[in-house]
Structures are given as structure tokens and as C-alpha cells.
Simulated scan of single mutants.
Amino acid sequence: MIYVSSARAASDISDCLQRRLPSTQVIRDQGSTELIVGSNAWLVTLTPSGYGSTVKVQQSASDDGGVPEPQMRFDVARCVV
């Protein structure tokens, strides 16, 4: 699991991750945004906060290997700064 805070808005992080990661589905629900990356391999939850947003990344038990963890960590790090 990856859990970080960012000064960037959740919408900016979402846009950045969608550009970097293949086959990303976006679900917006009551203020938060969820991105499903790959075929349910990763779940990224973006929640607005008083200073930007929080980012929570979880790997699914049914990971298909489509996006390796090192790539996911790299892309998240690039998008939250």
C-alpha cells in the first residue's frame, strides 16, 4: 500500500495518472476520485484535503501483472509533486 499527501489537487493527480498509466477507469463518488488501473490490478483513491489531497494506492489480490509495482510507485511519485 502507498499512502501519501500532496499539495496538488486530486483532479490534477488524476489527469497525470491517466496520461501515464494504461487502461485507467475513473469513478467519482462524493468528493473522492477512484482510479482502477489495469484489469483491477491497482486501486488509487484520491481525496481532497485542506492542503491539497491524499493519495491511497492498493494492489489487488487479483493483480494481472499489467502494471508492475516499481512503475506504479514511480508514476505516483511523479504525479503527486
Rank of each mutant, 00 (worst) to 15 (best):
P48G: 08
T54P: 01
A9L: 11
Q25P: 02
A10T: 08
G65L: 08
T33N: 10
D75F: 06
D75C: 11
V37P: 02
E34S: 10
S62E: 09
T24Q: 10
S49K: 10
S39Y: 07
A77V: 01
G52S: 03
V76K: 06
Q18R: 12
D64N: 13
A7T: 08
S53T: 03
I27M: 05
D64A: 13
S14Q: 12
T24C: 04
L21I: 09
I2M: 09
D15C: 05
S39L: 03
R28N: 14
S60K: 05
L43I: 01
L21P: 06
A41N: 11
S60T: 04
V80A: 05
D64G: 15
A41Y: 01
G31C: 11
L35C: 07
S11N: 15
G66Q: 08
V44L: 11
A9S: 13
S32N: 14
T33M: 10
N40V: 04
Q30E: 12
I27A: 05
E69Y: 04
L43T: 03
V4Q: 12
T33P: 00
V55G: 02
L43H: 01
D64E: 12
R73G: 08
V67D: 00
S5C: 06
L17S: 09
A61D: 13
R78Y: 02
Q18G: 09
N40M: 04
M1D: 12
V80L: 07
D64S: 13
L35S: 11
R8H: 15
S6M: 03
S5D: 11
V80P: 01
S11R: 14
I2G: 00
S11T: 12
V26T: 14
V55A: 03
S11F: 00
V67H: 02
N40T: 08
N40W: 03
E69V: 06
S53Q: 07
L21A: 06
L35P: 09
Q30F: 11
P70M: 04
R19P: 00
L43R: 04
L21G: 08
C79M: 03
R78P: 00
R78K: 05
G52P: 00
V76S: 10
G66N: 06
T24S: 11
S32A: 09
L43D: 01
A61S: 15
E34H: 06
Q71D: 13
T45D: 12
I27C: 02
T47I: 04
T45K: 13
N40Q: 08
R73Y: 04
G65V: 05
V81L: 10
A7Y: 13
T54Q: 05
I36E: 08
Q59E: 14
K56R: 15
A10Q: 06
E69G: 02
G31L: 09
T45H: 05
R28A: 13
L35I: 03
Q58V: 10
F74P: 00
A61K: 15
